[in-house]
Design a protein around this nucleic acid. Structure first.
Ligand SMILES: [Mn+2]
Ligand SMILES: [Mn+2]
Ligand SMILES: [Zn+2]
Ligand SMILES: [Zn+2]
Lengths: 148, 148
DNA sequence: GTGTCAAATTATAATGATTTTAATTTATTT
DNA sequence: AAATAAATTAAAATCATTATAATTTGACAC
């Protein structure tokens, strides 16, 4: 944890941003909820528990900043809000998601899986791939068993 | 064109919805801009050219309805608006997108490409895939040549 | 240490996309 | 033709996000 924060601090400094108390509190919440997909409001409420004086606008600005630095990825599952997802430690690309259309659960896939597909895209479509967003919609393991 | 509209009409009827003049006008706009990725507002303005009496709320409701029927897919490229994308004729799955981070252009890939990956997801993660969303972010052919 | 400046934050107001509401119109059934 | 349900309109409301103005913080110069 402290280790990850140190790294993020250095990333901020390298672009001459500071790790303010508000930013640190926000990062801590993100680290403590790494599996989740929190909205700005969600993050705000969680940060407020430990740092009640923080403002919602600051959380928004911090998340935007972390997004520019690629510390988090901003994603959208189609409900009306943006969600913020920490990059996995040392990950080159954004990870994938499995969204269950029955129960709404979201599972993560950290394996890349797209190496071959990206090579095809680069050669067939002459498009130089930098990153990807992949989400599968379907029935999760749980909901499958409940069905029959 | 008339052929596609007939099909959509039948899809609506099968769920006991009607193809009202407003709905037809909206579908026509979508068909005439199949390559584009129009926002609700975009669609509204285009429909208004031929049917000036239509209301924005109707366009929203129509797009929502078409989305439920899987005639269109609602997507989000990270700017603040939802965009509505017609399913390709007879397509089983949603098509993929190549978004250029330099110029913002969006290109479509109709080939599926994910067959193998989906098999892996089904067996390794025991997740029954129904559909997918895949977007690549990178440098388009045009912007590549301008670079050097 | 005190003054100065830029960056960051706060509280609040504004914006803009989308949804809801109430009244009206249209189409369908009796 | 009257009754009923579905769809639409115009307007207001909602809600996520962004902008604004005033205040605070922290680094640096004197
Ligand atoms: Mn995730
Ligand atoms: Mn498309
Ligand atoms: Zn499920
Ligand atoms: Zn480009």
């Amino acid at each position: 944890m402290e280790n990850r924060i140190e790294k993020i601090k250095k990333q901020l400094h390298s672009q001459s941003y500071k790790l303010t108390p508000q930013r640190e509190a926000t990062v801590r919440v993100l680290l403590e909820h790494e599996e989740d997909h929190l909205s700005a409001e969600d993050v705000y409420l969680l940060v407020k528990e430990k740092s009640p004086e923080i403002g919602l606008a600051t959380v928004y600005r911090t998340l935007e900043l972390l997004s520019e630095l690629k510390v988090v990825d901003k994603i959208n599952f189609g409900d009306g809000v943006s969600r913020y997802d920490l990059r996995k430690e040392g990950a080159e690309h954004f990870h994938h998601h499995l969204v269950c259309v029955e129960c709404g659960s979201v599972k993560e896939i950290e394996e890349d899986l797209l190496g071959h597909v990206e090579k095809t895209v680069e050669s067939q479509w002459e498009f130089q791939v930098k990153d990807h967003r992949l989400t599968f919609h379907g029935i999760c393991k749980n909901c499958q068993s409940e069905h029959d």
